Simulated assay, not measured.
Amino acid sequence: MILLVQTVVLGLLAGGVYALMSSGFTLVFGVMKVLNLAHTSTIVLAAFLTWWVWQRTGLDPLLAGVLVGPVMYGFGWLLYRGVVARVQRIDHELTLVASFGVATALGGVMALVWGTDAKAATPSYFNSSFHLGELVVPTAQLYACGGAVVLLLGLYGLLRGTFVGRAIRACSADRDSAALVGIDVERTMARMFAIGVATTGFAGAALSVLYQFVPDSHYVWIGRVLCVVILGGLGSFAGAALGAAILGVSEALTSSYVDTRWATTVPYLLIVALLLVRPQGLLGGRGRADGALA
């Protein structure tokens, strides 16, 4: 019984980080109806920036991730203004291709700057754990998940309780109507996209502590992020959180009770089986117009 509880706890801790990694992706899709394939590249970029700060200053990498967040916000704003907005004026569907191009370019730049060797940030608590009776909770996973949950709650509060959030929700529902009531749609879109990229700051910090990474790691993580948002329902914020928890727990259960080699396979098979029954995802029943808010 203790093994089952231990496995579920570890899966939920991983799921918290998966949820943060996916939140910006599903926010962008919920408002813009665009699959931003560069999202996980920005997560890896944030991981490299966090690792670099940790190497140079010794600052705790998870705290460094909080500082990297505003940097990623600025990068997201420039990415939207310089690439996404320009491409959308030509053809909305080209944004998918453009984002893939950005992901490939970022991978090349990161390889030139930091090399292709695997990196990882190892703070002092990297190998420590909390003990609750027979239950062992790894400190790094707990801190990463705790920070992810705080940021997710903050993002939810931003969307629900601020003018910027209300403007984003209005644009998600109907951009023309939002413009008629005085909302600067283009500015709101830029802010929204930048906020989505800003979430990768702490997500990248968590990645740098919990996993080894290389410039091409985004190819691995885009699969997990897509699984989370498709499982929960494309564009559903709450669905992303639920999908992340399910993915994290299913991976942990597969590793413990089946084989670690199947850990990244069985969850995807489960997702395919679910989508055969409910193709819109677990929380994707409502229209996509309110996807960023669900």
Rank of each mutant, 00 (worst) to 15 (best):
A178S: 14
G284A: 08
Q6T: 06
I222D: 03
L153K: 03
A205T: 10
A111T: 11
E186S: 14
S172Y: 07
G115C: 03
W114Y: 14
L20I: 10
L94Q: 12
L62Y: 04
A289D: 13
V220K: 09
A47Y: 05
Y80F: 15
V97D: 03
R224I: 12
G74H: 08
F48N: 07
I2M: 13
L37W: 15
F202N: 07
A167G: 15
Y143L: 14
V9C: 09
T26S: 06
A263T: 08
G291F: 04
V181Q: 12
G65K: 04
V5M: 12
G101I: 09
V97W: 03
L35C: 04
L231F: 14
T264H: 02
Y257G: 00
H131M: 05
A240Y: 10
V28T: 15
D91L: 08
V113K: 11
G233L: 06
Q280I: 02
P138L: 06
S41T: 08
F48C: 03
L282K: 08
R56C: 00
R286A: 14
A19Y: 12
G65T: 04
A173I: 12
A245I: 05
G58F: 10
Q141A: 13
A98I: 05
M189S: 04
V228A: 07
T40H: 10
I43L: 15
G204A: 05
A98R: 03
A206V: 11
A19E: 09
A179T: 10
A245E: 09
L10A: 14
L35F: 15
L276C: 06
F25V: 01
T139N: 08
G204K: 07
A118S: 12
V137Q: 04
L158T: 05
A244F: 09
T95N: 07
N127H: 13
P279T: 06
A173R: 12
V34T: 13
A118Q: 13
Q280K: 14
W52T: 13
V66W: 09
T104N: 00
I246Y: 03
T57H: 08
V17M: 09
L59Q: 06
F29M: 05
V44P: 03
S99C: 09
R89H: 13
L62E: 05
T42S: 06
L207D: 02
A289H: 11
V84F: 14
